[in-house]
Every structure is written in C-alpha cells, then in structure tokens.
Design a protein around this nucleic acid. Structure first.
Lengths: 120, 120
DNA sequence: CTAATATATGAATGATTGTTCATATGTTCA
DNA sequence: TGAACATATGAACAATCATTCATATATTAG
C-alpha cells in the first residue's frame, strides 16, 4: 500500500469523512507534538524516573544521587542535564556542590497519572 | 569514582542520612519502576502520540490511521501493537476491519498533564 | 598558586528501537 | 475453493540513546 494515497486505502474512510476532517483540525501543531513527545521520552527511562523519585523526597547533590542509585557520577550528571533541559529539575550551586530539586509539581502529577494507569 | 561506595562519595551524605534512608524506603519496587518507565516510553514517540490524538476523536481502522498520518499500514500496525500491549488502546474486529479505540480515559489525562507542563 | 573535591562534558560504544519489506493470517464474497 | 482485501508479523537496517572513560571546568582550602 502507498501511504500517500490519502483516500483510497480501504472502504471505511469515505463513510467517515467528517471525522477525518475533525481529526485533521484537532491535531496539535508540529511544535507541540514534538515537545510533548520529547517530554514523555524523558520520563521513559528508568534511571531518570529513579532520579525523580529520589528528588520527591528532598533536594540532593549529584554524588548522593549516584550513590543512592548505585551508578556513576557521570551517568547521573548526563541524565540530570536531560531532566534539566526538559525543565523537570533545577540545579542550585552551593560551593562545590550542586543541589538538584524538582522544578515544579507537574512532575509528581504526571508520574501519579502513570501509576494510576498501571495500577488500574 | 566508584558507584559502589555508597557512603563516601562526598561530604554531604553523612549530614542527611535520615533523608537517604527515607528515599531508600520510598523507592517503588522494581516491577512498578519497570512498568512506569515502559508506559512513558510508549508515550515518548511522535507516531504513537499522533495515533492517540487520532483516537481522541473516534475509533478508527488501521488503514484510516495510516492514511491520516501519511504512513504505511505496517508501521501503524506495529505501533498499535505497542499501544495495545501497554493497554492504551484496544482493538475490535468487524469483518476484515479492526477498529482501534482508546482503552480508557487515563490516556487523555496523562497527555493533558504533559501539555500542562510544556505550556507552563 | 596548588591540591583536592564536585560536577560537567565530548567521544566512543553497545544496546535499543522505528520503519521498511516481504509475507503470513484472517475474513468476505463470488 | 479461490481471489481480494485488511491486518499482523518476523527479519533487517538505520538511527537514536544510555553508559563509560577520559578529561575539563569550577570551587574551596591550605
């Protein structure tokens, strides 16, 4: 099948052209779609989820997180950067140490929704 | 640094041992962590997000979704399987055609939370 | 300034993943 | 039964990504 043939792919599309039009109009723009996908992609890694769980409890320095999760400082630092770029965590420098904390409480809300789904 | 050295990685961990202990206890078990990560990983792909958006509007057959998104039937079918395994969509066969629909309204809630965050 | 400590980062690598292609399965109709 | 259609699926390939290693930056103490 050729995906470019937008209307002749099967017998059903002609019977629901109003719906097809509604879908087309309600699709979010490319930028929103990209940001949304990117946000969930960040949540889709167990190291990053673990880091977020750690930060639910308290702000913490890179090395403590690494220690808690049994991973290297470098690995954690790389992932903290990803989380920071997604504005899920924020860093605060105090001398040599950088303390990371959750950026806001959307994070917890999103994770809770995820937990809701898997608990179902 | 060796990540196995759970206590001697920096000067701070000793000053917050109560918090470290609290974090340890509140970390979800491995299974939950895996399911949660897996769920968000499924949301973390723009094709799958697009499919979910299409299904917000109405149930639809594989080939219509493919047509709407300008992708091949095979690609969509593969992704529908992923969405089905994550129990985000469900399929209903009617003759030759299989209609897919959202499994429940957690899906919309989770995506809305994501939109909330990026709109912020 | 130098040494020590905490964090950040670029490059390399192994693993994972989305799409494609070819083909199989399942259903209807003649 | 056989042809036509809708969907599903396994294997292969290219692209993406998490971690590691080595090293750079930043801060403090001496």
């Amino acid at each position: 099948m050729n995906a470019r043939d937008t209307i002749d792919c099967c017998d059903y599309i002609h019977t629901h052209e109003d719906i097809v039009e509604a879908v087309r109009q309600k699709m979010p723009d490319e930028d929103t779609l990209y940001d949304l996908t990117e946000l969930f992609r960040i949540f889709g890694d167990s190291t990053r989820i673990r880091i977020l769980y750690v930060l639910f409890e308290a702000e913490m320095c890179v090395c403590d997180i690494a220690s808690l999760l049994g991973m290297t400082q470098s690995a954690i630092s790389h992932q903290l950067r990803a989380l920071k770029n997604a504005r899920l965590v924020k860093g605060r420098r105090e001398g040599k140490t950088v303390f990371y904390a959750l950026a806001d409480d959307h994070v917890k809300t999103i994770i809770d929704q995820g937990l809701n789904h898997i608990a179902e």
